[in-house]
């Protein structure tokens, strides 16, 4: 059984159809890159998988471990193992990062019928992960993402990914707003999380990110569909020739 199976997905925002019959199959252990020009529907796909309000699925289905993902609330999806690393992680003033991490982790564990972490176990786990990602302790005391730099925000997303141990990670434009050093740190964090049980969907406009997170499969999206799929060579071709060739194919 595939981990994620998207079949003939049609999605509307207000009165406009953004995705017109998208198919995608992702198995455990695989890393898929989804590339495409602005407005091709990449971020819409990630939002619909995570359950962001405001999108109307008019046709098709999304199965996650064989279950109907679209029937679940966003938090149920998270507990099942769907993790979206946001393109623009929000700032939540007044909610200390540490408190947030514990609340979220325990909510997920509780939903799965697992025991909640004890405070010392939790602290130990966070410290380990934070250290591996070079995240200073005082960052964890601050409000979630409040006053964080672009790189810090993305590292905070990776930290959560490591902590929550999801089976599907969707990285939405992880490279946007990052310089090369920040990108490398974040990508190293992501690569450390690659495992046979876990799949990743890397959404990006540029090939650059794929030098650091090397995909098994590359899909090109244009105008709400996957128009071409291939291996990592495809990304390099795109880098050379651009997206224009696909604009008409759609």
């Amino acid at each position: 059984m595939a981990l994620l199976e998207v079949r003939d997905l049609h999605v509307r925002v207000e009165d406009r159809e953004i995705l017109h019959g998208l198919d995608l199959t992702v198995n455990a252990g695989e890393v898929h890159a989804i590339m495409g020009p602005n407005g091709s529907g990449k971020s819409t796909l990630s939002h619909v998988i995570a359950g962001k309000p405001g999108y109307e699925v008019t046709d098709g289905q999304i199965l996650f471990k064989g279950e109907d993902l679209l029937a679940m609330e966003p938090d149920e999806r998270a507990a099942k193992g769907v993790f979206l690393a946001f393109q623009y992680p929000v700032e939540i003033p007044g909610v200390a990062t540490m408190n947030f991490l514990r609340t979220a982790l325990n909510a997920q564990r509780k939903a799965r019928g697992e025991d909640e972490y004890s405070t010392p176990d939790f602290l130990k786990k966070v410290r380990e992960v934070a250290k591996s990602l070079n995240i200073p302790q005082d960052m964890l005391k601050r409000g979630v993402n409040v006053g964080f730099s672009g790189g810090e925000k993305k590292r905070n997303e990776v930290l959560q990914m490591a902590l929550f141990e999801p089976s599907l990670c969707i990285l939405d434009e992880m490279d946007s707003g990052l310089d090369i050093d920040a990108l490398r740190i974040a990508a190293d964090g992501v690569n450390a999380l690659r495992s046979p049980d876990r799949a990743m969907v890397v959404i990006t406009h540029y090939q650059r990110l794929l030098n650091y997170i090397v995909p098994d499969f590359v899909h090109v999206m244009s105008r709400g569909r996957v128009v071409k799929s291939g291996d990592k060579q495809l990304a390099l071709e795109l880098e050379a020739s651009g997206y224009a060739q696909f604009e008409d194919a759609a």
């Binding site: 359950g51 962001k52 609330e73 938090d75 999806r77 909510a107």
Partner: peptide, 13 residues
């Protein structure tokens, strides 16, 4: 957007 972020991290509404 804050609510969605929290829900995407596993918190119920």
């Amino acid at each position: 957007s804050l609510l969605f972020y929290l829900r995407a991290r596993g918190l119920c509404e």
